[in-house]
């Protein structure tokens, strides 16, 4: 399968995502510049981490108007799998492809550490190779990952099982201490109602090889490979 890795001015995890897809998993991968208007026939799109457009105004606020986002929106609407990692998640929120918004971390610090997330849902293209309840040790690195949505939106996310990843402690409990940024309900990642668009603050692409301290993130990339192979997601061309 082929991954499209979107590159915004200021993206800095694009090569990590490319490396995970191309060299660790041996899949086809291509960088797509943010001004491009074609996803080059990719089967899945990754919006990588970084500081697109310098995070000016708000994180993701300018990136959402990049020409490539029209293609990403079309791709997502047709059921194509889209993964937003960290800044990519923030862009998906600003673009309205996922509900809610990000606030400054509760600590007002840039949090850079390994966290544990629990896989809450396995019926998304980026979590289907996981076991339900599986705990993944993955790094975070962000200043604005404090997920916020109005209470009724959060209620809907929970009742529609759209919370895919949650910050938990070593026992699997979503405690305030295990929550690195103040996100409502310890939400680390979520999906849209169609379940094909997933955003998360932790960086799975930085945890794809044991030499990096953890290979727990690889399962998200393996999931989408499996998902595309099974034809469980729409093929968008």
């Amino acid at each position: 399968m082929k991954f499209a890795i979107v590159v915004f001015p200021g993206s800095n995890c694009d090569h990590d995502a490319y490396h995970a897809a191309k060299h660790v998993l041996g899949q086809d991968a291509e960088f797509i510049w943010h001004k491009d208007t074609s996803l080059q026939g990719a089967d899945a799109v990754v919006l990588p981490g970084g500081f697109a457009h310098g995070d000016y105004l708000r994180t993701g606020a300018i990136a959402r108007f990049s020409p490539v986002m029209q293609e990403v929106t079309k791709f997502a609407a047709a059921g194509g799998p889209v993964l937003g990692i960290c800044n990519g998640f923030q862009i998906l929120l600003e673009a309205g492809l996922l509900p809610g918004a990000m606030l400054r971390n509760r600590s007002v610090k840039f949090q850079c550490e390994h966290v544990i997330v629990k896989v809450e849902q396995t019926d998304t293209p980026f979590s289907l190779a996981c076991d339900r309840g599986q705990r993944l040790r993955i790094p975070i690195a962000h200043g604005e990952g404090n997920y916020y949505a109005e209470p009724e939106v959060v209620e809907r996310l929970e009742s529609h099982r759209q919370v895919v990843f949650r910050y938990v402690d070593t026992n699997g409990a979503p405690t305030p201490e295990a929550n690195p940024n103040g996100s409502v309900n310890n939400i680390a990642g979520l999906c849209n109602e169609g379940r094909n668009v997933v955003g998360l603050m932790p960086h799975p692409e930085r945890a794809c090889e044991l030499s990096l301290g953890s290979a727990d993130g690889l399962v998200m990339f393996e999931s989408v490979v499996q998902s595309v192979a099974q034809g469980t997601v729409a093929t968008v061309r």
């Binding site: 606030l103 400054r104 509760r106 600590s107 916020y148």
Partner: peptide
């Protein structure tokens, strides 16, 4: 400005 219902970590600091 942030809506009154939204916590403002920077303002608090």
């Amino acid at each position: 400005t942030l809506k009154p219902s939204v916590f403002d970590p920077q303002g608090t600091t």
